[in-house]
Design a protein around this nucleic acid. Structure first.
Lengths: 117, 117
DNA sequence: TTTCATGTGTAGTACATAGGCAACACTTCT
DNA sequence: AGAAGTGTTGCCTATGTACTACACATGAAA
């Protein structure tokens, strides 16, 4: 939401230092959008693109997909689908963890990973 | 997604049995939409309405908000915001719990509720 | 020096979203 | 019988989403 465009630009230019294939035009082409559009995205002249395009960008620029989506004010449809299948269960869980510190959540993740139901 | 409209209609007609104030027109008015629109919603002639309208309907018809949103293929912006603030943490957690049985998740919720971080 | 690639400005577009408005027929009070 | 309330039909629309297409100026490469 805040600096989606800058994040993209910074990462791309960083990658460009060691590989000329990371020009705006080439990245745009590989991602499947018009260079002019990517230019506007990077300069925040337009709102962040669609989920599909963001995922392509994340992959191309080696950025965490969910983090990039979050910067665009979105949540991946993959996660949404999990929630939608059991709404009250996940709604409770998430709201319960809303104020929890990071390490408490990490703890939960670990417990869950090691549990055998 | 499947029977959003039917759920609304069924619940409304059930409530209407003991209270005439639950006519389609009156409910629509209280919710803040046109009766004609609610009629179409209930008969699935149109796609489910916006999140704001769904929340109003849930409240008016005493249905769980998140469950109703899920039927409409949505996840509340409230939950999304929680996830967006710590994307990788919650993405991991949710995907970890994707296949977990209900009672395992309930267990986690209880543990979290009783824990003091 | 022509060629080529780079980033950018302007304009326009196809489609989806989220409804509103007017009018109709039918039932129910009074 | 008239008035009021009920659900429904058809048509219309404003706003947003997610881009594309074209043209241009600048810098590097041959």
């Amino acid at each position: 939401m805040k600096h989606f465009g800058r994040t993209i630009r910074d990462k791309r230019e960083q990658l460009k230092l060691s590989d000329r294939a990371f020009s705006l035009r080439q990245v745009a082409t590989r991602v499947g959008i018009e260079p002019a559009y990517l230019s506007k995205i990077e300069r925040c002249e337009v709102k962040p693109p669609s989920e599909a395009t963001i995922v392509q960008l994340a992959q191309e620029l080696e950025i965490d997909k969910d983090v990039l989506l979050a910067m665009a004010g979105k949540v991946s449809s993959e996660l949404q689908e999990v929630i939608r299948k059991r709404p009250q269960l996940f709604a409770n869980l998430i709201l319960q963890l809303k104020e929890a510190p990071d390490n408490a959540i990490l703890q939960v993740v670990r417990e869950v990973r090691d549990s055998n139901w």
